[in-house]
Design a protein around this nucleic acid. Structure first.
Lengths: 96, 96
DNA sequence: CGGGCTTACGGTGTGCGTAAATATC
DNA sequence: GATATTTACGCACACCGTAAGCCCG
């Protein structure tokens, strides 16, 4: 699956708010803020613009979001594919 | 990025061996084994066949690997894209 | 026996929550 | 002054490494 930091990033990007993202992820807002900060440091890129009361993605953040969304989609499909494989094998056993 | 467990899964799948994967990831073999086990439990799916001396992917493992490879590729491209954005903005500043 | 994976068991680092501080409007 | 994010600070748990156990050739 995706790392915790990436899942937090996705939540903040979707909600455009650290506070609401923290609620959605069932984690305290400082904890989420810290992880996003660490992520920005390790990437060497500012992902969010925190000036003003609105939290907005930076241009780099928007770019990164595109790729992360596709990666996230891969895991959703993977989960479904595993489920289907299980169903098929059970169905196959029933045939015998 | 990808979660630690997924990166361990990728390493074992590539090396077809827990021992060699552990060396490649610079982690002890029991630690890696434990994480893969936890991953299998949380997915509810056996990813590797450990019978015999060879470690092989199960059918489900092969399926999962396909999606994980694509997700991994997304992050490689994301990293490159961020790098390119940085280069462009520096280049842009130079133009002024 | 020998190579390879698992189990058992402490120790440590990382992520967490609470509380206080800072900043923007 | 109110809302939103950051900083400070302990604490708990998850991950790790070492060592012993197990299984298949």
């Amino acid at each position: 699956m995706l790392s915790r930091q990436v899942r937090y990033f996705l939540a903040v990007a979707e909600h455009q708010s650290f506070t609401r993202a923290a609620e959605a992820m069932h984690v305290s807002q400082p904890a989420l803020s810290q992880q996003v900060r660490l992520m920005e440091e390790s990437l060497g890129v500012q992902l969010f613009d925190r000036s003003g009361r609105m939290t907005r993605l930076t241009d780099s953040g928007e770019v990164y979001l595109q790729y992360v969304r596709r990666a996230s989609q891969e895991f959703r499909e993977a989960k479904r594919a595993l489920h289907d494989v299980n169903d098929l094998s059970r169905e196959g056993c029933g045939w015998q």
